[in-house]
């Protein structure tokens, strides 16, 4: 049986609820009370307004630069994916080819160098596309010269082990050290994507590693795929 709340009890629940949430056991009673009590409904709004002001007492803290890079890489990747050009017939054919299970399973364990470039740069004046396979993963790399943006779509990678493991994208200049570029983010429909803000100009290789965590300046985990970049 649902408890019937007085206005005072409801107001107290609304006050604490605005701060840290209404206890689940009291939600139904509070909902019933609010339907019938416009004064307490107003009170809910007042408490919510006050709670929304509480964080404004804090001094803003400068977030680490990699947070912005990570966030925007994902945002740009999703935006680019939603307007990606229709694949040409070689890519459509490639996506229909049966995958080797052995290659797919093996990918997380060992460093695999690029197996081969399957199709060449394409299509529109602004967007070029590189389709390749590396260690069983299928990689689509869209390069938008106008936006100085590269978008990576990867399928065929196994999920990272539970915990903090993550696939990280690195850019390697010819003869230089790898630069962290982005993290592969799992997409709702399957596969992974990432965006490299700034584009690929000046880099010789794009590599994907399986890292034990985020934030390292150099790869610590195994390279699971790499792609040689053309000029």
């Amino acid at each position: 049986m649902t408890t019937v709340l007085s206005c005072e009890e409801a107001d107290a629940l609304l006050a604490i609820g605005a701060l840290s949430g209404v206890p689940p056991a009291e939600e139904e009673a509070l909902r019933r009370h609010l339907v019938e009590c416009p004064q307490c409904a107003d009170s809910a709004q007042r408490h919510a307004r006050v709670a929304a002001l509480l964080p404004l007492q804090l001094d803003a803290e400068e977030p680490p630069p990699q947070l912005r890079r990570r966030l925007m890489a994902t945002v740009y990747a999703e935006a680019a994916a939603s307007r990606a050009p229709t694949p040409s017939w070689p890519q459509r054919l490639w996506t229909r080819l049966p995958r080797s299970r052995a290659l797919t399973v093996a990918i997380a364990a060992v460093a695999v160098v690029l197996a081969g470039v399957l199709a060449s740069r394409l299509a529109t004046p602004e967007v070029s596309e590189l389709v390749t396979t590396a260690g069983g993963a299928s990689i689509h790399l869209y390069t938008d010269q106008q936006d100085h943006l590269a978008t990576l779509e990867v399928s065929g990678l196994p999920a990272p082990p539970a915990g903090t493991s993550v696939y990280e994208v690195w850019l390697v200049p010819g003869g230089g050290a790898a630069h962290p570029a982005a993290y592969l983010e799992q997409q709702p429909g399957g596969g992974y994507s990432a965006a490299v803000v700034g584009g690929l100009s000046g880099y010789a290789t794009l590599a994907i590693s399986l890292e034990p965590g985020r934030g390292d300046a150099a790869p610590r985990g195994p390279i699971v795929a790499s792609v040689h970049l053309d000029d």
Binding site: P55, L58, D59, E62, L67
Partner: peptide
């Protein structure tokens, strides 16, 4: 972003 990071921290 700075305020958000301050809240989360």
């Amino acid at each position: 972003g700075g305020l958000a990071f301050a809240i989360a921290t």
